Simulated assay, not measured.
Amino acid sequence: MNRSSPQLLRSVASRLKSKSLEVQKGRLAITLASYVAYILAFNFLDSILGTITGMIITLPVLTTAWMFGLRGGLIAGITSLPLNVSMVEVFTSQSATDWMFSGGIPGSVSELLVGTLVGRLRDVDRRLSEEVAKQREAEEVIAVTDEVSRIVTSTLDFDEVYDRFAGELKRLVDWDLMNVSILDDEKDTVTVQYFSGDETGHLREGFTTPIVGSRSQQIRDFGKTVILDESEFTKGMSWELDLLNAGFRSAILVPMFSGGKVFGNISLRSRRPEAFHDREKLILERLA
């Protein structure tokens, strides 16, 4: 096993990026709120602070830099001058020209420097945090892989092996139902040898079905992992229809190999739509 697997780190990075859209929306909302608060409070603050009111724009500049890093800090610093000019023109009796030459321009340069510095520091902090998160998850995958290897070699009780394997796997991949199916090429059938979760219609431990036309045939013939969402559940298979009716919305089936030949598969099901992606695929393929 390559403990510094770059593929694993890339998979973890992909998972982190998949969450970035919601995070970006939250950051944008906070940033906009800081500017709205500044604009609404400008007239009141000007009556108290006078000409130094424009310095308060440092707060939204800092907020933008912290939320969006160097690029955000630069943009906030550059736009602080025209924004303050607009505020002065609208809310004060002072002319924009007088304001700029009485401290407005030096103040805006300071805002640009502050936004740049804080944004740069934030980028470094975020990059380090992401690297630490990726490394920690990669190390956890390796630890679970090692533990699974130890479990397999420590007992001949297959039920105990599968139970402990399922427990370790749950640390890394969230699932609601798990089964291990074994192929019988002589009888051309596939049998569920292990099952964890609520029994659902036909799918239970000991359930046997013909390989032909099943997902197991697809996995055996191509030797590749299959990821399904609810639209891909084959309603012609009664047990897949049972799963769909029971509320399962996604699945992943990973081939198990022996001597270069597929002899079975590990299947995970989830009631969450699109629960399985490249990260889960890579983890399961390392463990299968």
Results as ranks from 00 to 15, higher is better:
Val192Phe: 05
Ser238Ala: 15
Met100Phe: 10
Gly206Phe: 13
Leu128Val: 13
Arg249Gln: 14
His202Leu: 15
Leu203Tyr: 08
Gly197Thr: 06
Gln7Asp: 10
Ile56Ser: 14
Glu168Val: 03
Ser270Met: 01
Lys134Gln: 15
Pro60Arg: 10
Val114Asn: 02
Glu111Arg: 15
Val161Pro: 01
Leu287Asn: 11
Asp159Trp: 02
Gln7His: 11
Met178Ser: 05
Arg286Asp: 06
Phe101Gln: 04
Glu168Tyr: 07
Val109Thr: 06
Leu40Ile: 12
Gly260Thr: 08
Arg215Thr: 08
Trp175Lys: 03
Ile30Asp: 00
Leu70Asp: 00
Ala37Ser: 13
Gln193Ile: 07
Glu230Leu: 07
Leu9Pro: 00
Asn265Asp: 08
Gly223Pro: 06
Asp229Trp: 04
Asn179Leu: 13
Ser216Tyr: 05
Arg150Met: 11
Asn265Glu: 12
Ala251Leu: 11
Trp66Asp: 00
Ile227Gly: 07
Gly77Ile: 11
Asp242Ser: 09
Thr63Pro: 00
Asn84Gly: 01
Phe42Leu: 03
Gln24Cys: 01
Val148Trp: 09
Gly167Phe: 02
Gly247Trp: 09
Ala251Tyr: 01
Leu16Met: 14
Leu113Trp: 04
Gly119Glu: 05
Arg220Cys: 00
Arg150Pro: 00
Gly206Tyr: 12
Val36Thr: 11
Asp221Lys: 09
Ile211Trp: 03
Arg127Glu: 12
Asp163Lys: 14
Gly50Gln: 10
Val161Tyr: 01
Asp174Lys: 15
Asp229Cys: 07
Arg3Gln: 10
Pro255Tyr: 10
Thr53Ser: 12
Phe158Glu: 09
Ser270Pro: 03
Gln7Arg: 14
Ser216Met: 11
Gly115Met: 10
Lys187Cys: 00
Tyr162Asp: 02
Ala251Pro: 00
Phe276Thr: 07
Arg204Met: 10
Trp175Thr: 01
Leu113Val: 15
Phe222Asn: 13
Val161Arg: 12
Thr92Asp: 06
Ser181Phe: 05
Leu244Asn: 02
Gly54Arg: 06
Lys19Val: 07
Gly197Ala: 07
Ile182Asp: 01
Thr155Asp: 03
Ser4Cys: 02
Glu285Ser: 12
Asp157Val: 09
Phe207Ser: 08
Leu172Gly: 05
Leu177Ile: 04
Trp239Pro: 02
Arg27Cys: 10
Asp229Glu: 14
Ser267Ile: 04
Gly259Ala: 06
Phe222Asp: 08
Leu49Ala: 14
Arg164Gly: 00
Gly167Pro: 01
Ser110Lys: 08
Met100Pro: 01
Gly247Val: 09
Val85Ser: 12
Asp229Ala: 10
Asp146Arg: 15
Gly107Ala: 11
Asp157Trp: 04
Glu205Cys: 08
Met87Glu: 02
Ala37Met: 14
Met87Tyr: 01
Ile219Glu: 04
Leu287Phe: 13
Asp278Phe: 09
Ile151Tyr: 06
Ser4Gln: 13
Arg204Lys: 15
Gln7Trp: 11
Gly115Ala: 08
Lys187Pro: 00
Ile56Gly: 08
Phe44Ala: 15
